[in-house]
């Protein structure tokens, strides 16, 4: 049975609350990464052999690592690096992914088939393996690292954009708009982007999480970022031998990774679109 009167359907509050919480945590992390170097301008590579693996104190609010380096400054720097790399890779991946996705949906036919084939080739390789390969060839290069991550991430944008655009472009609304004389750019601006943006933001949040995980995982196996750079995965590797002496220092980078991924997942809505 259909019903005549529309009944307002309240969006489920728990989900938006979770999103808000995720956003709050994320903002705190960004503030942490940006504000700490301003108010705590310590050199992240400066070693202090008089305070190795020290507990939190006035001089080192989050203690020091095995080389006596200040953990607060290093953590903030690591978060900045992770978020920055994630942002750059996500944006780098999104631009070709979205543009090619729209192109494939718009043109169809051979263009669509060729692009589909290309993405399937990428999908045949496990993403992390591809990143590992590229980073192994260019060790220590940030450009290679983020480029490789972007190369893995763009496929998701392409596939989602293509699928959504196909439905939108086939809709009578687009036909009506074209019939009124509007060109392709208008269709992209008024029809496609409003449909795509919420989904793309979700993919971006997931993509950022994957990028941060990938960078941390690569550093953990000593590929990618080189010391003395402060990087979350690298910090965990470096501090692993001192786990029994000072559990606190290794807990900090683990907790920060957890918080970054958690906040991004909550922002993304907790599930893949």
């Amino acid at each position: 049975m259909s019903f005549d009167m529309t009944v307002a359907d309240a969006t489920s509050p728990p989900k938006s609350m979770a999103r808000l919480f995720g956003l709050g945590v994320f903002v705190l992390l960004v503030l942490f990464a940006v504000l700490v170097p301003m108010f705590w301008p310590l050199d992240i590579a400066k070693q202090d052999y008089s305070a190795i693996l020290s507990s939190p104190s006035d001089a080192h609010p989050l203690g020091t690592d095995h080389l006596g380096r200040d953990m607060l400054a290093r953590l903030a720097s690591a978060v900045r690096l992770s978020l920055g790399l994630a942002l750059v890779s996500v944006v780098t991946a999104a631009i070709p992914g979205v543009l090619l996705g729209i192109l494939a949906a718009w043109k169809g036919g051979v263009v669509d088939k060729l692009l589909g084939l290309l993405t399937e080739m990428f999908l045949a390789l496990p993403g992390l393996l591809l990143v590992l390969l590229i980073v192994a060839v260019f060790p220590g290069s940030f450009l290679a690292l983020y480029g490789a991550v972007a190369l893995v991430l763009w496929i998701e944008y392409f596939r989602m954009t293509r699928a959504l655009s196909r439905t939108v472009l086939a809709s009578p609304a687009v036909a009506a708009t074209r019939l009124l004389g509007f060109g392709p750019l208008y269709v992209i601006r008024r029809h496609l982007l409003p449909e795509l943006l919420p989904v793309l933001l979700t993919i971006a949040a997931f993509g950022a999480a994957s990028a941060i995980m990938a960078i941390a995982a690569l550093s953990f196996v000593s590929v990618g970022v080189k010391p003395p750079t402060a990087e979350l995965g690298l910090m965990i590797t470096e501090l692993l031998p001192y786990f029994s002496e000072q559990p606190f220092v290794i807990a900090a980078p683990i907790l920060v990774i957890f918080l970054i991924i958690l906040s991004l997942m909550l922002i993304a809505g907790g599930r893949k679109p």
Partner: peptide, 18 residues
């Protein structure tokens, strides 16, 4: 553009977000 169409379902003939 002097040849136009009216759709059966008008809601489906407008960009939904503007």
């Amino acid at each position: 553009v002097a040849f136009q169409k009216l759709y059966q379902d008008p809601v489906a003939a407008f960009p939904p977000t503007i």
